[in-house]
């Protein structure tokens, strides 16, 4: 059992939890994630670690309500417990002095990009951060990202806050202006990561993406999280989750993540039917495999 010591909604349907997990807090590095399970009939889902505090023995996770499990999770509050939390999983982000780095976070992906941006900044890089959201309300971690970047651009799809447009619009401007870019990190919905990778491909700008395939054990046993990278099977849980964006087959990732679309919808429907009249936040499906990292 892992105790929640703090919980707050940071945007509609997006909640940040501080969870007691001393072993994980001690070992977490930027770019890693946890897998959690809520109850004894629950599924295992991967969730982003946004931050860790080894002294307090806690980790912060950021969760967007997408499917049944994330809705259940986001109904929990301080003092409640999460049955299983395992991690930190995946390889940490590569942190080095690259020079000029652009860190792009889309939607709840900002939570995964944030610790890497912080580590890259600490390593002496010039960090230009771009965070994108559908609208003003869904912009998360603005203050945190501002603290760890040299410049921060915010884009909203509907223009309700900051720049109207997509994160790639800003990235394209940077490239067109001849800004030297040594590394791009993109974390967010698959179409966003794919678009970023397409944009940087012709200029051979090294581009890292953090993938969120279907995953069960997360330890290199089941092979469910296999992704096609440079024509070869790689396992996101032990070889990733970060890969060279120019080598990732995003079409295969999108197609495999749709495997359980029907089941996920059914699960959510049944969950809604059993839900108390108390209305749950229910943003549209954002195309995430199973309510996990997105």
């Amino acid at each position: 059992m892992f105790k929640i010591v703090h919980a707050e909604f940071i945007a509609p349907g997006i909640k940040r939890f501080e969870v007691e997990a001393p072993r994980i807090a001690r070992k977490h590095k930027a770019g890693q994630f946890v897998i959690l399970r809520l109850h004894d009939r629950g599924e295992r889902i991967p969730i982003t670690i946004e931050n860790s505090n080894p002294e307090r023995g806690t980790i912060n996770i950021v969760v967007q309500s997408v499917g049944k499990t994330t809705h259940l999770l986001n109904a929990l509050n301080a003092g409640d417990n999460i049955l299983d939390v395992v991690g930190p999983l995946g390889k940490p982000s590569e942190i080095a002095l690259f020079g000029n780095v652009v860190v792009i976070g889309g939607g709840v992906g900002v939570a995964m990009a944030y610790p890497t941006a912080a580590a890259l900044k600490l390593a002496g890089n010039h960090v230009a951060a771009i965070i994108g959201a559908r609208n003003k309300e869904l912009v998360i971690l603005e203050r945190e990202m501002r603290q760890v970047s040299d410049e921060l651009t915010i884009t909203t799809d509907d223009g309700s806050y900051a720049e109207k447009g997509l994160v790639t619009d800003k990235l394209r401007r940077l490239i067109d202006n001849g800004t030297r870019i040594d590394l791009v990190l993109a974390v967010g919905p698959i179409p966003m990561m794919r678009a970023v990778a397409e944009l940087t491909r012709k200029d051979h700008i090294r581009t890292i993406v953090s993938l969120n395939p279907i995953m069960i054990d997360g330890t290199g046993m089941c092979g469910g999280c296999r992704v096609l990278v440079d024509g070869k099977s790689q396992f996101a849980c032990v070889d990733g989750p970060e890969f060279d964006g120019h080598l990732v087959d995003f079409a295969v990732l999108t197609q495999r993540n749709s495997t359980y679309r029907q089941e996920e919808e059914r699960s959510m429907e049944e969950f809604r039917r059993h839900l108390e009249p108390r209305a749950a936040d229910s943003p549209d499906d954002v195309g995430c495999a199973h309510g996990g990292r997105g």
């Binding site: 599924e43 295992r44 499990t69 069960i216 054990d217 046993m221 089941e263 699960s267």
Partner: peptide, 17 residues
């Protein structure tokens, strides 16, 4: 693993599909 550990064949009583 889906069948034995996660009892996915009892979906939706169990959450793993």
């Amino acid at each position: 693993t889906r069948i034995n550990l996660m009892k996915a064949y009892q979906f939706p009583a169990y959450d793993q599909p």
